[in-house]
Simulated assay, not measured.
Amino acid sequence: MATLFELKDLFRNANAVCFDVDSTVIKEEGIDELAKFCGVGNAVAEMTRRAMGGSLTFKAALTERLALIRPSRQQLETLISDHPPHLTKGIKELVRKLHERNVQVFLISGGFRCIVEHVANRLNIPLTNVFANRLKFYFNGEYAGFDELQLTAESGGKGKVIRLLKEKFGFRKLVMIGDGATDMEACPPADGFIGFGGNAVRQQVKDKATWYITDFDELLRELEHDNFKMKQNNIYF
């Protein structure tokens, strides 16, 4: 396992950074917000807690929760337009800084692609860098299930996405950032994991993560410190 020093060095020199979305890039758990909007909030929130704590496989939790919610296309569109997700403080600046350093930024979510694409557009992340679950609807707009062929619909799906990215692009320094057990389990194949507790604290992640942060400003400071050192080197050497 990498030391804190090694992990910080890896982050400063990363060629790809993958973010979880719910309770990391955004303040909410998207599926919980959809459940509340559809009138089954309490039951679904309990399932989410069990899934994020690692006591229930992701695919089983997703299937159970969606069977309760059964969202229509209209409900989903209304949720996004009337109650758009709130970006976590500092994430916009962090993504912009990573882009300036030519770091590839990906969003890997067990949530729903329509919501995650909305978030990606606000962060100037190309939609080709979005991996999330697709809901299916009948012609009349009623819920028809979800696409079970998506990697993100599987247990361990985030790790499978990261393995695919590394094979496709040859990333050698890829960092995963997230709040939940499914994010931590994606390392390996991710080369490093940073736990995030700024919106929700998952005790298992807090206890086991070598680097655990509660504010994205900490990562921004790492990058700014790195830029300062590079400027010094350019001046004196």
Rank of each mutant, 00 (worst) to 15 (best):
F216R: 13
L56F: 09
K27D: 02
H83S: 09
S109D: 12
E167T: 11
L165W: 06
A144H: 03
V25N: 06
G195E: 00
G192Y: 05
K89A: 11
R202E: 01
A2E: 14
R96Q: 08
Y236H: 15
L4D: 15
Q204F: 15
L66E: 01
G198V: 04
E117P: 07
N121A: 15
G30P: 01
E33M: 01
R172D: 15
T210K: 10
F106T: 06
Q232H: 12
R50P: 00
N129F: 13
N42C: 08
F171R: 01
K231I: 02
R73Q: 07
G145V: 15
T24Q: 07
A200H: 14
A144S: 05
A153G: 02
A35V: 14
V201C: 13
L79S: 05
G145A: 13
G157D: 10
V130W: 01
C187M: 01
E64Y: 08
V116R: 02
R70M: 10
S23K: 04
D20I: 06
F11V: 11
N102R: 08
R96A: 07
A144I: 03
A51V: 07
T57S: 14
A16M: 07
I91V: 08
V105F: 00
F146W: 06
L219G: 04
R122Q: 13
F193C: 08
L223R: 03
A144D: 08
I162D: 00
M184I: 05
D191L: 01
L149S: 15
G170H: 09
Q104C: 11
H99R: 14
T210C: 03
E185P: 05
G54I: 13
T88H: 06
V205I: 04
A35M: 11
M176E: 04
V44D: 02
G141V: 05
A16W: 02
I91E: 09
Y212E: 01
F139Y: 07
V25H: 08
V44S: 07
K8H: 06
G145F: 13
Y236K: 12
I115Y: 10
H118Y: 12
A45Y: 05
V130A: 02
C114Y: 12
I91R: 04
R221Y: 06
D32Q: 11
A132G: 09
L220F: 05
K208P: 00
I235A: 13
L76G: 04
K231E: 14
D82K: 12
L107T: 02
K97R: 06
I125H: 03
T210I: 10
G39R: 06
S109G: 07
L4R: 14
L68T: 09
A16K: 05
E77P: 00
K231W: 03
E64H: 04
M230V: 00
E224A: 08
